[in-house]
């Protein structure tokens, strides 16, 4: 029974489901910080053209990252026979646990993606800092 240090690896796997929300969080903090520093320190006339481009690029990167975690989650979710027709998947096996974690990752990716898209809307809709 090799369980040594399973705590560490276990937490890692558990934290993986939060990669999508963490991407949202970084996207959020960087957008907010960049807008604050741009508007207070870097621009003189309130123009946000450069800021818009930079944050759109950031948003695309964030969405790509979220999509990747979603796809990995989807694979775990559908692996292990959970999708096979006519079978009742078990609940107390390693596969069922991975299926569950996969499903939660997918769901969290969807919420994170919506969060990221909502976050870029002010940048697209506002022409100036004010």
């Amino acid at each position: 029974m090799s369980t040594h240090n399973e705590f560490g690896t276990g937490v890692g796997l558990l934290m993986k489901i939060t990669i999508g929300p963490w991407i949202w969080a970084f996207h959020f903090v960087i957008s907010y910080g960049a807008a604050a520093i741009w508007c207070e320190k870097l621009t003189t006339n309130g123009d946000i053209g450069t800021l818009q481009l930079a944050l759109i690029a950031l948003t695309i990167a964030a969405l790509a990252g979220i999509a990747a975690t979603g796809i990995i989650g989807w694979r775990n979710w559908s692996a292990g026979g959970g999708k096979r027709a006519g079978t009742e998947p078990g609940i107390d096996t390693d596969e069922s646990r991975n299926r569950f974690l996969g499903q939660v990752s997918v769901l969290l990716s969807v919420v994170s993606a919506i969060g990221v898209v909502l976050m870029i809307l002010p940048i697209l809709m506002f022409g100036t800092c004010q």
Binding site: F28, S31, Y32, A35, A36, C39, E40, I48, V111, I114, G115, L118, M119, L121, P122, I123, M125, F126, C129, Q130
Partner: peptide
């Protein structure tokens, strides 16, 4: 605060309604 900062937080406040 700059309106653009307010915009971010307004957006996030709407997003939390989903979960």
């Amino acid at each position: 605060l700059p309106n653009i900062s307010i915009g971010f937080f307004s957006a996030a406040s709407e997003a939390v309604v989903i979960p």
